[in-house]
């Protein structure tokens, strides 16, 4: 499942959709009799497709024999799931209680300003998407943000540029 958690950029994937669907079918086959299978399947699917498009969600609903309304409800409940294509790097700002009181909101404002996008949006160059999350379980490191799978701790709004810098470099490389 760990490979499924990786966030892939839909734009830079060369794998054709048919192949991804075949892989999804294998996953569905594996989880179809598991009553708690919906969330792992959604995580894997998001890893495969980069986000959760409607046809994939309907396919998952059919494959797991679950109502589409429930699948959509679960996707909408967890901020880690996205139904929109996202940028190469997904920046998630924690606004859980601890992060919020230690300045998460200011970190978010700073990110919005730096990236020039609002929550739920993607930069024009498709390099960054900005999202809000509730608690990474890193309350001791508050305020925390995640960029892809990396947790950044005690982020200062004034030092956002430096935090983002490596992710520009990756693109250049």
């Amino acid at each position: 499942m760990s490979d499924g958690l990786k966030t892939t950029c839909a734009g830079c994937s060369d794998v054709d959709e048919q192949e991804l669907m075949t892989r999804l079918d294998e996953v569905l086959e594996e989880y179809k009799d598991n009553s708690g299978g919906l969330i792992p399947v959604l995580q894997i699917a998001q890893g495969l497709f980069g986000y959760l498009p409607e046809n994939v969600l309907r396919h998952i609903a059919t494959g797991l024999n679950k109502p589409y309304s429930e699948v959509a409800g679960v996707v909408g409940f967890y901020s880690f799931f996205s139904t929109q294509p996202r940028g190469k790097n997904v920046v998630r700002v924690c606004l859980g209680t601890a992060c919020y009181v230690r300045g998460g909101k200011q970190v978010l404002d700073s990110l919005k300003k730096e990236l020039g996008i609002d929550v739920g949006e993607t930069t024009a160059d498709k390099n960054f998407s900005l999202e809000v999350a509730r608690c990474f379980g890193a309350c001791g490191l508050a305020p925390a943000i995640m960029i892809n799978d990396d947790v950044h701790q005690r982020v200062k709004p004034a030092r956002i540029k430096q935090v983002l810098a490596p992710y520009y470099e990756k693109e250049d490389a």
């Binding site: 699948v71 959509a72 409800g73 409940f77």
Partner: peptide, 17 residues
């Protein structure tokens, strides 16, 4: 199963997908 809670918190709505 046409209806299910969608989204969360204050924004929760009850409805179809």
């Amino acid at each position: 199963s046409a209806l299910f809670p969608q989204s969360r918190g204050f924004k929760t709505t009850i409805g179809p997908a």
